[in-house]
């Protein structure tokens, strides 16, 4: 990523701008696209309560975190939030800031949780911690900006329960993907990455 530069290629008759991309850039783009696909599939699932979503895209974040580290995971999930908001049409709308704050806080939490001893704690723990951080980040925005009164507090236990359930499920899915690739196999669910 660091050596990415912009250069005008003069030899080309078309005025083209060449972006020198690294293999890591391609990997980030590919994983962000997978995450985006999951987010769109998830958008089609009706939810009984606005804001309660499985967060399937976080499975990708967890896998990326475990394989390529925190920096790549942060790129993937922030790109997913940005591109997702453009696709869903809520860029800079309240929903965008809700997912941005949730994602930022859960990335921060993941940065902490990844240092838990790997012998005892796996992606399930990371996922649960990130899910709680996600709702915490959203609640902060809701309180400070969107609905500055206590009515929403009634829903916090519901959001927390959803975070626990979906965090566990996503973490277990990510853990089984990661667990199944012990060996030379580098193929996650048919996605060459």
């Amino acid at each position: 990523m660091e050596e990415r530069g912009v250069s005008n290629s003069i030899s080309d008759s078309r005025s083209a701008i060449l972006l020198h991309t690294t293999a890591e850039d391609h990997r980030i783009a590919r994983m962000a696209a997978v995450a985006l696909g999951l987010a769109i599939i998830e958008g089609a699932i009706p939810s009984p309560l606005p804001g309660v979503k499985p967060g399937l895209a976080n499975i990708v974040t967890l896998i990326v975190l475990s394989r390529y580290g925190w920096r790549v995971a942060a790129w993937v999930s922030l790109l997913r939030v940005l591109a997702g908001s453009l696709l869903f049409g809520n860029f800079l709308a309240p929903g965008f800031f809700l997912s941005l704050s949730g994602t930022l806080l859960s990335l921060f939490a993941l940065g902490m949780a990844m240092h838990l001893p790997g012998r005892w704690f796996g992606p399930v723990s990371q996922s649960i911690i990130a899910a709680f951080a996600h709702i915490a980040g959203q609640m902060i925005v809701v309180y400070l900006w969107l609905i500055p009164q206590a009515g929403i507090a009634y829903l916090i236990p519901v959001f927390a329960a959803a975070a626990l359930v979906f965090g566990t499920v996503n973490g277990a899915i990510a853990a089984s993907f990661l667990g199944n690739e012990t060996g030379a196999c580098n193929d996650v669910a048919g996605l060459k990455v």
């Binding site: 005892w120 704690f121 796996g122 723990s125 853990a175 667990g179």
Partner: peptide, 12 residues
Amino acid sequence: VIRHIKPGDWLT
């Protein structure tokens, strides 16, 4: 799936 859940995960 359960095989991939580590002891600390149950604690979490």
